[in-house]
């Protein structure tokens, strides 16, 4: 079970820049460590993060093993129309974690 935190302002003025903050719980196991018995711990990281605003990509990022666990990401978008902002994280094992936020543009 993945816990996700998203912070998007509920209302924002047309044309204004606003900040989006995200935090997701994930071990980001690098695949370079060994367990207590010397066996390698298989890699398990979030490989890709995509944020779209009314279907238009705002940011897309490929993540690599050096990204810390529980990754935090903050970025800016410009307010266009009211609608939804969607977030998607893709895991190494293909699991997709999705989250949606709504925004009101005035």
């Amino acid at each position: 079970m993945t816990t996700v935190r998203i912070r998007v302002p509920s209302t924002v003025k047309q044309g204004e820049l606003f900040e989006i903050r995200t935090l997701i719980q994930h071990p980001m196991e690098s695949g370079q460590r060994v367990d207590d018995n010397g066996r390698p711990v298989p890699r398990k990281i979030l490989r890709r993060f995509v944020c779209t605003y009314n279907g238009v990509e705002v940011i897309a990022a490929d993540w690599h093993p050096a990204v810390a666990s529980n990754p935090y990401l903050a970025f800016f978008a410009r307010a266009g129309e009211s609608g939804s902002i969607e977030f998607a994280w893709t895991d190494d094992d293909g699991t997709l974690t999705r989250e949606t936020a709504t925004i009101q543009v005035t």
């Binding site: 079970m1 816990t3 935190r5 912070r7 903050r21 935090l23 719980q25 529980n70 903050a74």
Partner: peptide
């Protein structure tokens, strides 16, 4: 918001 411990609080 950014405090990672808050993920456990939410859970």
């Amino acid at each position: 918001f950014a405090n990672p411990g808050m993920l456990w609080v939410m859970r």
